[in-house]
Design a binder for these strands. Structure first.
Lengths: 332, 332
DNA sequence: CTTTTCATAGAAATCGTTCTCAATATTTTC
DNA sequence: GAAAATATTGAGAACGATTTCTATGAAAAG
């Protein structure tokens, strides 16, 4: 019952090949071009993309594999990737791994079956190493998380520097006992941890870091625990937007004041951070640029498969707000 | 260079048909099944989904067309839809229309070319009517926005009742001059407006509604304007999460106190609403249920194309927080 | 006026599967 | 033990497009 290119050809009085050329920009006389266009309208023809992909051997499709699209960081990146992709005539297949390496492997296999032209991927720590060994039929651009990333294109934040910046700011405000909460699923957490430790030692302070699941709930539980035990530090750094939210929730629930009872700083300048409490001091990641850059790297790689690997490191911006106001007992 | 089913067949010493059956669950002897599986492993074969879709004539793919995935409401719905879909062995193609009817038309055409099995769609007001007339090769389930929706399956919130509930709450708290801000792009905005007007009249109050673009920026500008003119009401209702955020931003920027200078209530219980100011009173939509229900309606429709249309109306829950605390001059 | 060149159109092969149908081997039934 | 029923398997068509290759007609060159 469906209308194929043959039906259009018959209606236009030409061969299927000519219809294909008329639609695809091949060399066709103006006269037949018009006939074909009329026939397409008359029949209501819609090309079958599966057939086109099969025969032409390119899918015009890329994969985007992230931990969780409902994390605003990935939402923003995804939106940028999709806009760039649709502009370039590419479809996007979106996959949520929930930081689960098995799902990652499953989706990578799916990408092979879809014969995607490329993949943009934010891998867990566990997959980063496997990835270095594995070989796929499509280029992969890592995003947000790259580790040492032997030989793979990547776009990441300068995590070490950003964490360092955050600690330096807190120290300058007079805070001494600064705890860090870091995600245990990604290399990003490790890099931020390293930046934190380095900055603390630089300032002659003792680092006190905790690696936890990168979720609101885990961070909230951890913070609640501190308040119950009376072990809360003067200030805390949370290594992503979700964990930052968890800390804020815990403070609200415990009736604590920000920053008087505990100062807060974190990553990801999500719009709510401006509105919560006295405003939260955060590192702003250039999320849209990140997505766009990943697409660009992917396109470049498709153009030049053998070009040397490129790792793009973007700088974060420290947005200072009320949650890290000068500690009361600070030296002037 | 790519490995096809023929290569596997040769490696396993069977016909391509047998390989297809072995992989697809057809009747195959245990012996050959094992041979095929070994051959698949040995060759590293990955089925070509385009070829499979072309031949089998079903795409195992659905479309999800929403205004903007970075709106947390749609993010949550999308996540629920995708989880249900992947569980059912279906891919999801996600499209952002930015409330632009032209993009909507373009993506619907894309869905036809992809030969999707179905579409879940949150249309603009402009498209809702056209949709009633148009006919597609796949079922469409409307989500969030349905209007009168002649003959189309739909899952929506009881917007009228929800707005009514919000106004009633504000009135009970002693607020009288209550302004409503409604989105001008969707039928949802109209329904919430109608509920607002009805509740105001019920209470013997004069409605004062404004229809604006459903964005943070538009709501922020409108609210700023009030403060500059000195025309701010005692309380405001914002008809979605983005507009609610705009109002809060404007109050913060103007140094106004919530709820003393102006009370706030709105839609969408996004996690930040709990953390902003004294906490925001909102209508919580069952977003995950919404997404799941839409998938369910779609699957049911595929099973029974001629069954009568079903419109599922879900109730909202009013979450009361500090932003609507009793007005100081209120009667007891 | 004939020959060469070029642009355009059609015929047929092809992409990698699934599906139909006929053939074979096996089991069941009488 | 023969006939019928059943379960597997393979050969080949088909899905709907693009692409290659060949044929045709017109234009250009001699």
């Amino acid at each position: 019952m469906t209308i194929s290119i043959k039906d259009v050809a018959r209606a236009a009085g030409v061969s299927p090949a000519t219809v294909s050329r008329a639609l695809g920009g091949g060399p066709v006389s103006a006269e037949l071009q018009a006939q074909v266009e009329a026939a397409v309208k008359a029949t209501g023809y819609r090309p079958n993309l599966s057939a086109r992909r099969l025969r032409s051997r390119h899918s015009q499709t890329i994969g985007l594999i992230v931990a969780d699209i409902s994390n605003p960081f990935f939402t923003a990146v995804a939106r940028a990737v999709e806009d760039s992709a649709y502009k370039a005539g590419l479809r996007v297949i979106l996959c949520n791994t929930d930081e689960n390496p098995q799902k990652e492997a499953m989706y990578l296999q799916l990408m092979e079956e879809e014969r995607v032209t490329g993949v943009i991927f934010a891998p867990t720590r566990a997959s980063v190493d496997k990835l270095a060994r594995a070989t796929y039929n499509f280029p992969i651009v890592l995003i947000d998380r790259a580790g040492r990333a032997g030989g793979r294109d990547a776009v990441v934040l300068d995590n070490f520097a950003a964490a360092d910046m955050l600690v330096a700011h807190l120290v300058a405000q007079g805070y001494r006992r600064i705890t860090g909460l870091f995600g245990n699923a990604s290399t990003t957490g490790i890099e931020r941890h390293d930046g934190y430790v380095a900055a603390m030692q630089q300032a002659g302070l003792t680092p006190a870091a905790r690696f936890i699941a990168p979720t609101v709930e885990a961070a909230e539980a951890e913070t609640c625990h501190w308040f119950k035990q009376g072990t809360a530090p003067e200030a805390v750094i949370a290594s992503n937007g979700l964990m930052l939210m968890g800390v804020v929730r815990a403070m609200l629930a415990a009736g604590k004041k920000i920053p008087e009872d505990m100062a807060i700083a974190g990553f990801d300048n999500e719009s709510w951070t401006e509105l919560a409490g006295p405003g939260l001091t955060v590192i702003e990641q250039p999320v849209a640029d990140l997505g766009r850059a990943a697409m660009q790297l992917l396109m470049d790689r498709l153009d030049a498969p053998d070009a040397p690997m490129r790792k793009m490191v973007l700088g974060g911006r420290c947005v200072v707000r009320g949650s890290t106001r000068r500690a009361t007992g600070a030296a002037a």
